[in-house]
Design a protein around this nucleic acid. Structure first.
Lengths: 341, 341
DNA sequence: TGCTATTATGTGAACGTTCACTGTGAACGG
DNA sequence: CCGTTCACAGTGAACGTTCACATAATAGCA
């Protein structure tokens, strides 16, 4: 006979023959309980399949056992980012382990993206939030830090230099890709950058890594070999056409993300070039389809799952008020050499 | 001077000079309020930037203003599914519009995937849930329906034929792809199916659509032209090798998802075949990289955003206790013809 | 033995909101 | 002019949990 009402702490208490408070103590083991009562209570909890109500628990000013994950609205780019879900999943895994749940906000249909941030702060629906940083997210982060709301940025937080952030090592990635191309004998390396204006800090670092490698090899960075795209494959194609039309075209292209790299390859193939013999192409991010591409793409890989997990772990430190030794965490990246270079 | 405590309904009431209940009435417009008091209260709410506490609101047995989204744990396949996030985003948009938030559960690290389901039911953390149906999710759905927990399946709910489901029109998709290949003059069409055992109902429907088209054209479905993969690109490659090794190999391949189709193309190219001249290949799902592929993939497309949105809308009907006229909703699909056929 | 520290349990209030009532006046029909 | 109805506002309790405090029983020590 299934009960209509869910069992409450009261039911458990009366079944075990103890007071509410004792049951509460058992649940949170927040106080001394004798061995015998402990067992009685645990037995009762099991029998009734009792679970504390999240709402009631968070009411007395405590925590909500929920963390937020904010994905700023960015037309289609982010939503189709295959690595994003893995980041979310990583954060969820970490949250789950601590008995937390994950509240996702894609800050959907509201023109004013800030609404999503405000909800988190004043709703007290979540004890903290993870924020995917993009070109359009800095306002939101500023709002969070202003309210002293605990949050961790995934990516560079442009608005708040002192904020806690977790990011892949973009600098080292740019360095490694370039070094790899240099090792292959290339000296003229074309760059397909993101948008010229409003470019994200991550891309800037990739570029700096590139320059560093070039200079270390005694070469100088040639701005005439850099063109701009907008992350899409199509922009990678047109960018490549520009590069190949140069009087002295590059023998290798480093696209700052995989999609543009794929566009570059396609564009070059259409022009009759063989990859990698006539033109080497490398990307960045290692999206799942990078290995499926034709030819498979050399790129920079970082575990998105770990990225999310690390960020979540940091957020919990923040929530618990623990001191954070390192506010900016940079995750190591891995060069994945495939057939495109 | 920023207040430490968030403002409560009490603060609003005293500022507006009315009782708590009146404020509550304004918020939920659940009762008659005179024009003048209405304005006073609204003014006070604005001044204090007041937002009702979710926890307190859901405590008196009402709803939690949260819906869940359960993604069953499936090694890497689902997490890297680029369409999944769009579905989530669609559901979130719909939820957002109703003042709801979305609690995501990737049922992460718990071996026993059911834990995620139980949490939703007994925690009363969410008023209902959206469930991505996979081969491994039927147990969980059964648990939900047993507890009379409101939920909507995305995909076919194998465990509960009476459940509310939203799905793309797999049958029609299979039909359209096959018809398209027949129109191109192909009569021997190879099929790359999902796993032979534990295959999902969606795939079965795609196959039935295929058969229907074949029979309508006066052809019969040839089981010897069907091989099995496991959704991955690699399995598509080996499956294609099998098909091409046949004494009378097919001139076209219909892979039941895009990834396997990509594997098929790559495998055929390696064997020296031209796509689509020597072999036409079609997929299913229209993952973002399908158009980026080389050559771009002919496939079946459905708006994932809309899928999630429709499911959420249905869930809200369920939660509100509204009668559901159609429990199984099937979203129309679109044939996207690209260069691979 | 008596006095304090410790362990184990129970009691009442509080968290912020909504629900079921109760109480006003005013409008209306007879 | 009186009873009924309505529009509006307020009051107290309840939701399920935890917190601060009070109590009872045990143990430790002089």
């Amino acid at each position: 006979m299934p009960e209509k009402k869910r069992s409450t702490i009261k039911d458990v208490a009366s079944l075990a023959g103890v007071s509410l408070q004792t049951v509460s103590r058992v649940i949170n083991n927040s106080g001394p309980v004798s061995e015998t009562t402990l067992q009685k209570v645990q037995q009762a909890i099991l029998t009734l399949n009792y679970r504390p109500s999240l709402a009631a628990r968070s009411l007395p000013g405590r925590c909500s056992y929920v963390i937020g994950f904010i994905v700023p609205y960015e037309v289609d780019y982010l939503i189709t980012d295959p690595n994003l879900l893995a980041q979310i999943s990583g954060a969820d895994a970490e949250a789950h382990q601590r008995g937390y749940s994950l509240l996702l906000s894609t800050s959907g249909n509201s023109k004013n993206g800030l609404e999503a941030y405000e909800r988190f702060v004043s709703n007290q629906a979540a004890d903290g939030a993870l924020v995917i940083e993009t070109a359009s997210s800095s306002e939101g982060s500023k709002l969070l830090s202003l309210q002293e709301y605990p949050y961790v940025s995934i990516g560079q937080d442009l608005g708040n230099p002192g904020a806690c952030t977790v990011d892949r090592d973009n600098y080292d990635g740019g360095r490694q890709i370039t070094q790899h191309l240099l090792d292959r004998g290339h000296t003229r390396i074309g760059i397909i950058n993101g948008p010229a204006f409003g470019s994200v800090a991550g891309l800037q670092l990739r570029l700096e890594g590139h320059q560093q490698s070039m200079e270390q090899a005694g070469l100088s960075f040639d701005p005439s070999l850099m063109v701009y795209g907008d992350y899409t494959r199509r922009s990678g194609e047109t960018a490549t056409q520009q590069l190949l039309a140069l009087p002295d075209p590059p023998t290798a292209i480093f696209a700052l993300n995989d999609r543009m790299a794929m566009g570059a390859i396609r564009s070059a193939q259409k022009a009759g070039l063989r990859i990698p013999e006539d033109l080497a192409v490398a990307g960045f991010d290692d999206i799942p389809t990078a290995s499926d591409f034709n030819p498979p793409l050399t790129t920079i890989s970082v575990s998105s799952h770990k990225l999310g997990q690390t960020a979540a772990r940091m957020l919990f430190q923040l929530i618990d008020g623990e001191p954070i030794e390192k506010k900016q965490v940079v995750l190591p990246v891995e060069l994945v050499i495939r057939e495109s270079t």
